[in-house]
Design a binder for these strands. Structure first.
Length: 207
DNA sequence: TTCCAGGCAATAC
DNA sequence: GTATTGCATGGA
């Protein structure tokens, strides 16, 4: 596999190979193929955001267990999560690792989420929060708040490196720009492209 | 047993 | 400003 012209070709190749991915994965419906209206409720938006924090440097499998635990505690909503005792929260999110840090991150973010009152936050606003870095902020914007912004993760970096599109240790924002310059902002395409890159990296069909 | 998984902040240089 | 280190669980 190679890139003929630009990243649009890569997108088309991956889409042909793997098809629509229907990200973000959720507890209730699993994936939601061809439904780009998701998430529809504030609680669904919140669940995506929480998942974005929990999946930091950890496989999604681990996060699923954590989300299930929170659901069983009826704590997968902003107010209920805030009401949950510190120790119970840590126990519930243990499978996602870094539970001391992530418990703090979840509480900080949830306070912020409630203060939004349904408003969509800006990128810089999210980045200013303790515990929210570039990938987490962009994931929230793209998959929770439906803002067409490109998400860069380790898979994306590796892929670009293998195609000699970037140098070693290229900066996050430079890679992000690479994609956003080639492909006009489009919610569906940005959501699917990132998901396809992850799927491709996991499938290990070359690179 | 070692290594990695959809990062981030704190610290060191 | 860039490089390194701590954080932690679960599966391969």
């Amino acid at each position: 596999m190679y890139i003929k012209n630009d990243l649009k070709d890569l997108y088309n190749i991956l889409f042909t190979l793997y098809g629509a991915q229907g990200w973000w994965p959720t507890l209730k419906k699993g994936y939601h193929l061809n439904d780009y209206s998701f998430p529809n409720t504030q609680n669904e938006v919140f669940e995506v955001c929480i998942g974005a924090i929990l999946t930091q440097n950890v496989s999604w499998k681990n996060v699923e267990k954590t989300l299930k635990n929170l659901k069983e505690l009826n704590s997968l909503t902003p107010k209920n999560l805030l009401a949950l005792e510190e120790e119970k929260l840590k126990a519930a999110i243990k499978p996602a690792g870094y539970f001391n840090q992530k418990a703090k991150k979840l509480k900080f973010f949830t306070e912020f989420f409630l203060s939004l009152n349904g408003r969509t936050p800006g990128r810089e606003e999210l980045l200013s929060l303790w515990g929210i870095g570039k990938e987490t902020a962009d994931s929230m914007l793209l998959y929770a708040f439906k803002v067409p912004t490109f998400v860069v993760d380790t898979y994306t970096k590796r892929l670009c490196l293998n195609f000699n599109l970037i140098k070693e240790n290229e900066e996050y924002d430079a890679i992000k720009e690479l994609f956003e310059k080639s492909i006009k902002p489009d919610l569906k395409v940005y959501q699917e492209f990132h998901a396809l890159i992850v799927e491709h990296a996991k499938s290990k069909k070359g690179l």
